[in-house]
Design a protein around this nucleic acid. Structure first.
Lengths: 196, 196, 196, 196
DNA sequence: GATGAATGAGTATTCATTCAT
DNA sequence: CATGAATGAATACTCATTCAT
């Protein structure tokens, strides 16, 4: 960001812009994400947008950062320890669905379409490391050991499988369909339950 | 297509254009898919491109049609009947990986980013119906019955999960990683093997 | 128009663009009327043109609207009542010549060559109705009656004849030639004077 | 023309191209007049078109030349000598209408929209001289003298007035309307009948 | 700080014309 | 000679970004 907003008013402006950007990104994808449209939807002038974000990339990075932080936070609240595979799977799916409920298309667009200065899907990105360790920990927990390389691979496969189901459901507007959620829970349960 | 190529020369031109388009779409996504760049990479003039494709959309549709046809063909060769879940899963993963090996990013871009005259992810599109029925048939086969509504949901979840793993592996350039493939096989096997 | 100009600066920009468009249309016809050339002649960037006019058609419509309004206004000041045919004809020709003096080719290009969202030469267009009723009123006045169908035909023929003379004179740059004007006055006088 | 066609087949090809060009010019104006479209409508390849016409301008000139020749020929058959003004006017209007009946829009497009190497509306062009002398002769005939400068002006005004009525009628598809023709005859009669 | 007018490089597409077959 | 594939300059229009007010 170009400038750290000091006053409350400035912070509110930044907030409005980020929300407007997230809304457009979720609803219309990267193609609809134009700076003038964002400013208009946010109710600020295009000049003000550039007051806080030096360019379009920095804005999309801000949106991404905030969204991924929110996602991780929601997931961190669901811990594998002490829960049966089925119980954990149910809680996890609930959390993931919740993380996608406000801006259903946002996650997919941010990871798939939108360019980025940092590489968020780069194995070394801060977010990717945290996200991956979450899943490999879950896998290792049910294998009753510290996470090893095999658990990392399994964690990633599990993570990507959930990703695929959620994103495609989001595209079809079926993210709240209980039948889909139930099947996803079954998939996760089976994968975690079977020792190897 | 605007014009059916008659001479061998023009058939080759069309082929080159389609290949160049697929390459760019796979490597750089929809954003990099500009007609001038495609023509340049194909080594033809922009006029030649428009001689055969009335607009950008018709070109992307041609690429998509060809790619989806190829994918379905490869998958149709793997039939669930008579194979154990594990054997089928292994064959299926092998086929899906093969379908993604030349243009790893193409599938995702075609279904996620690129606009389309027909809606290929529309539940009623010819491709989607065939793709979905393939998976629900596999599910129903191991449940030893004709596919019912629950099998359709399971089929879609399985399809989307495989999609997610493959696409994310493709993005990381890890589509040929045997460890990932093995885990994916395990995921599919478990999901298909467990009656319900 | 895409955007209502608020500041004085932008109102001036719009004005400059419209003038430049009228100049080019008059001097070089529809073929020379390219958006980049207009912007260049107006001394603004192509982006500024599109800030106010969503497309080329809307610009030509703006030019047309302004020009036809001006023409009608000039003509409305010449009324047949109380004037002899010869006097009225002289006044009318003077007014029509005046309406063509700044952009001599504009009228013809606007009505003949330039496409339009509304159809200005459509018998039902607002302008055409007013223009036609002006002439049939004049005809009926000298026939000492309310305009009937025959007067409408006569009005149109008179209008088209004047049109032809003026447009061809404009093309030859002879619109101010007194000899031509005098002959045109004679033509109109004879046509209006002879009861039928 | 690039090449004088020697063989009968070549002459037929040229004829077909000219007809196709005239048809398109009349029906769709200068904007629809593209070389590829003309070749297609004529049923020849674009290469063949360029075999006979070095560029687009030479084709439109050929069309123009032929059309103006035909027009003059039709008109030359109507002579003022020995006819009353009313009789002559009636014959003249009939001839002019006939000259516009096959390609109603052609005349206007050729003189107004289409560019030209020679200037056909240039006062010094061969066609213009002949056309003008026709009308000034008619005027002078009824003034019982050799054409002088005043008669030339009157001839041109008369010519342009008829032009205007015919072209606007053509645009409205009303060229065969007897009411319009009758009024035009009246206009011409009055103008020619009144000595001055 | 905020505004919105202005900029111009970049993109899709057309069409007159050339030339290898 | 005829064909039609290939060319590329030109044109309408968009959108990230700057800067005067």
């Amino acid at each position: 960001m170009r400038k750290e907003p000091r006053q409350a008013r400035s912070r509110a402006t930044v907030e409005t812009i980020v929300q407007a950007g997230a809304r457009i990104l979720s609803d219309e994808g990267w193609a609809g994400f134009t700076t003038n449209r964002i400013a208009e939807l946010a109710g600020v002038s295009i000049g003000s947008l550039y007051q806080y974000f030096p360019d379009k990339l920095s804005l999309v990075d801000a949106i991404r950062h905030r969204h991924l932080d929110d996602s991780i936070t929601v997931m961190r609240e669901v811990r594998a320890d002490g829960l049966s595979p089925g119980k954990f799977a149910a809680e996890l799916v609930r959390a993931v669905v919740a993380a996608h409920s406000i801006y259903p298309g946002l996650h997919r667009v941010l990871l798939d379409e939108a360019p980025s200065s940092e590489a968020y899907r780069n194995p070394s990105s801060e977010f990717e490391i945290e996200y991956l360790s979450y899943y490999s920990n879950a896998v290792a927990t049910y294998r009753k050991r510290q996470p090893n390389e095999a658990d990392h691979v399994a964690g990633r496969v599990l993570s990507d499988a959930i990703d695929g189901v959620i994103h495609n459901a989001a595209r079809r507007g079926a993210i709240d369909d209980p039948a889909v959620q139930k099947e996803l829970v079954r998939l996760v349960t089976l994968y975690l339950g079977e020792p190897n």
